[in-house]
């Protein structure tokens, strides 16, 4: 994906190039590109006046930021304690098998990114799978295929 200087600059200007808005700027860039492109980070470093290594430090510290291009749909499988005992790992395995990627990676066609999370706080409806912010409650291995199909052509 090409990174357009103007687009990134506009996002930085929106936050008045302020140092304290670094995370907000990175969030906006992530929302725009679905990941943090290298060129954009360098531009942020220059415009905001934070050393590049500090920008990278923030971008790698938080799981919400990704330095690798992400797929169109982000599938997040909960592996918190409650989901874990109800079969979260098995569901993750099923997703890995059906999508053909390991957890943390993106499918070759760029449609899905598979991720895990430690807990989403809604343990009562576990095991939980979140796709693009939509919660799928009480999932099982059998429901995995349906969930993938639902988003395949969106």
């Amino acid at each position: 994906m090409d990174v357009q200087t103007d687009r990134v600059n506009a996002l930085i200007r929106k936050h008045k190039s302020e140092k304290k808005a670094l995370i907000a700027i990175l969030q906006d860039i992530q929302a725009e590109y679905s990941y943090l492109p290298k060129e954009a980070l360098q531009q942020v470093s220059r415009s905001v006046g934070v050393p590049l290594i500090d920008v990278i430090g923030v971008a790698t510290f938080y799981r919400a930021f990704s330095l690798k291009p992400r797929g169109k749909h982000v599938v997040t499988v909960c592996l918190g304690t409650a989901c874990h005992v109800r079969g979260g790992p098995k569901i993750l395995e099923e997703f890995e098998r059906r999508l053909g990627v390991a957890s943390g990676d993106t499918t070759e066609d760029g449609k899905f990114t598979l991720e895990t999370v430690a807990c989403l706080g809604c343990c009562a409806i576990g095991p939980v799978v979140v796709v693009d912010g939509e919660y799928h409650a009480q999932t099982s291995i059998r429901k995995v295929e349906a969930i993938i199909k639902q988003y395949l052509n969106k």
Binding site: P51, L52, I53, I56, G57, T60, F61
Partner: peptide
């Protein structure tokens, strides 16, 4: 300011941005 901490927890490491010469 060429090197710094990256990632966190057990993945934490010290390096240059993008692991190339800064």
């Amino acid at each position: 300011r060429a090197i710094g901490f990256q990632y966190r927890g057990y993945k934490k490491k010290i390096g240059t941005p993008f692991d190339i010469r800064s």
